[in-house]
Structures are given as C-alpha cells and as structure tokens.
C-alpha cells in the first residue's frame, strides 16, 4: 500500500494544511509520498522533503502548473493515483476544488472532510453541518479523500530530507478552456485563521466595519487571528475569507472568543471543536452561551476594550 498526499502551498511556502494531511496519511499503513505541483518550486520541494514521515517528494514543475488549475492538475494526479491505494488532499478551498475533479476522472466516490481514519477503508466525516458524524466504508480501489486540518496535528518539519523525484508532467496538456486572470489576497499580519491558537470573531453585534477595530485590537493583544460570522461578512464588515462556519473556514483553536455572535447552527459547525470557547454577548439567551465555557453577558463595546486594556 502507498499513500499520496497532495501538497497545498503558495509560491514560497508549504501551507500548514499539508502538514495536517501528512499526519492523517501516516495513520494508514504504507509509504507516504508527497506531490508538489507548481512552477519554479525547487524551494518548495526542499521544504516538502523536510516534513517528517514523508518517504518521497514527487515534484511536478511546469509553467503550465503555475496556478495549479484543476483542469491541468487533475489529469496528472489521476494518472499518478493508479500507483496508490489512497490519495489525500486538504479540505481547504484548494483541495475541495481539485480532488473531486480527480475523482470524476477516476470514477471514484470521494470522501470529503475526513475527521478520523478508522481503518484502511473506513472513515468518519461530519454531515448536516457537523450535527452528525457518518462512519463510511469505501469499496473503491483507490480511496480519494479530503482531510479536515483541525482534526489532525501538523507533522513536524524536521525529518528527512526525503528524496525528491521529478515527476512526469508531460501529460499536462495545455487546457485552453480556463485562464487565470488575477488574484486579490487579503493582506494580514495576523496568523492564518485555520492554524491560529487563538481566534477572536465578531458577528452582527459588532455593528459596522469601523467597529471591527475593537475586534482587531483584542486579536492583536492576544496574537490571535480574526474571524467573523456570516452575518458580519454579509453586512460587509469584513471580507468573506474571515468567515467561520459550515460554508466558511473550520477552526479548532485553543481559545475561541465569539463577540456579538448569536451562535447559529452554521456558525457552530465551524468552531465547536475549539478547546475553550468564550462568548461575549448582551443577549443572555443567545444560543452561543449553550456551548461557551465562559460567557460574559455584557455590552461588547464596553467589555472588549476593557478586556484588551487589562490583558
């Protein structure tokens, strides 16, 4: 048995979601190979080779892979996959976009958002916004799955170096149907949301984009990432990549501070595995208090600045 992990990385860095995915892969028995695909990525392949537990790095380095478009990358992975029993990718927007396309090409029913590996063919995954956990057994010859990062610890980047093999990207046909135009990334000095140890999130109760400065103030004092409920995103207080929930990002930090968030099912789906949850809300009946370890019924405009001041 052999396992292939598809690396998620930016131009100069392996993303932490890849490290969680390697840990999940190591729970299966067999060699774990890591596929690194992109353009001009010798530095990335070197980083990848340092990840503990990786047997081999397969580098696909081609100008046609620069934006890792699934139309180009999926056929390459589908052809590589035939040498593997399991192919894993992170359950991030990158992995969710890519892996089902591979599954379609291979005629395999993918398993999304795996939170536990029970055995070589049996897995647990949340359904219905995390309100039930499904245990499923796959009868496909190759198991394709996306891995929920917060359910697996990150692998150490201190092993290796594993050998780096240049993969064959010749089947990478020019796919003329899709053209990358531009990317607009949200610039932030704060930690990445899914990997942060502390997350401070604001909801509709924050009231405006300007008022979010008190959320940023508290987050910066704690070295935390900033999150938001869908209501805050829809109201335009912050951009959508801050959204925590069923349709946004899944986080499980040591400490999650929910400010002015009522606690709808869809929001809880994204944060209820946090170790400690704090809720600050003026409505004592808000559902968020049913999951919060520590609740403070107070006006957030007084409590949050005071908290920031006293920390």
């Amino acid at each position: 048995m052999a396992i292939l992990v598809i690396s998620e990385h930016s131009a100069d860095q392996i993303k932490s979601s890849t490290l969680n995915c390697v840990t999940a892969a190591l729970k299966l028995s067999g060699d774990v190979d890591l596929l690194v695909a992109g353009s001009f990525l010798s530095g990335i392949a070197q980083q990848a080779s340092q990840i503990s537990g990786v047997s081999k790095v397969i580098a696909l380095d081609s100008p046609s892979l620069i934006h890792q478009l699934p139309e180009v990358l999926a056929p390459l992975i589908a052809s590589l996959a035939k040498n593997y029993t399991h192919v894993l990718a992170p359950a991030t927007n990158f992995g969710k976009n890519l892996l089902p396309r591979v599954a379609g090409l291979l005629d395999v029913q993918q398993i999304s958002d795996v939170i536990e590996i029970v055995s070589e063919d049996t897995f647990k995954r949340p359904v219905y916004a995390g309100n039930a956990i499904a245990i499923v057994t796959s009868s496909d010859a190759i198991k394709l799955m996306t891995i929920r990062a917060t359910s697996f610890d990150p692998a150490q980047v201190s092993g290796g170096p594993a050998p780096i093999e240049q993969g064959d990207h010749s089947p990478a046909q020019e796919f003329t149907g899709t053209k990358f135009i531009k990317e607009e990334l949200t610039k932030s000095e704060r930690p990445e949301l899914p990997a942060a140890k502390i997350v401070v999130s604001g909801g509709r109760g924050v009231g405006s984009g300007e008022n979010f400065s008190i959320i940023y103030g508290l987050a910066d004092k704690l070295g935390a990432a900033v999150g938001a409920s869908r209501a805050a995103v829809d109201a335009g207080y912050v951009s959508n990549d801050y959204q925590v929930g069923q349709t946004g990002k899944i986080v499980a930090p040591q400490l999650y501070i929910a400010v002015g968030i009522s606690g709808a099912i869809q929001h809880l789906a994204g944060m209820k595995d946090s170790k400690v949850i704090v809720a600050i809300n003026k409505d004592p009946d808000a559902p968020i208090f049913q999951v919060a370890d520590y609740g403070l019924v107070a006006d957030l405009f007084e409590a949050v600045p005071e908290l920031t001041e006293k920390l």
């Binding site: 647990k124 245990i135 499923v136 057994t137 796959s138 949850i277 704090v278 208090f289 999951v291 019924v297």
Partner: peptide
C-alpha cells in the same frame, strides 16, 4: 460506493459558566 455503516452523535459540548465581569473572565 460508500457504505454508510452508521451515524454517531457528535461530542456534546455543554454550557459552561457565566462570569460577572471582565476581570473574572
């Protein structure tokens, strides 16, 4: 292709305590 073996309840998170002040928090 996937056999649903069974469904489990997710771990239940129970309500904690309410604190009175920022200092207590």
């Amino acid at each position: 292709r996937l056999k649903l073996v069974s469904l489990e309840e997710p771990p239940v998170r129970s309500a904690g305590i309410k604190v009175e002040s920022v200092d207590a928090l």
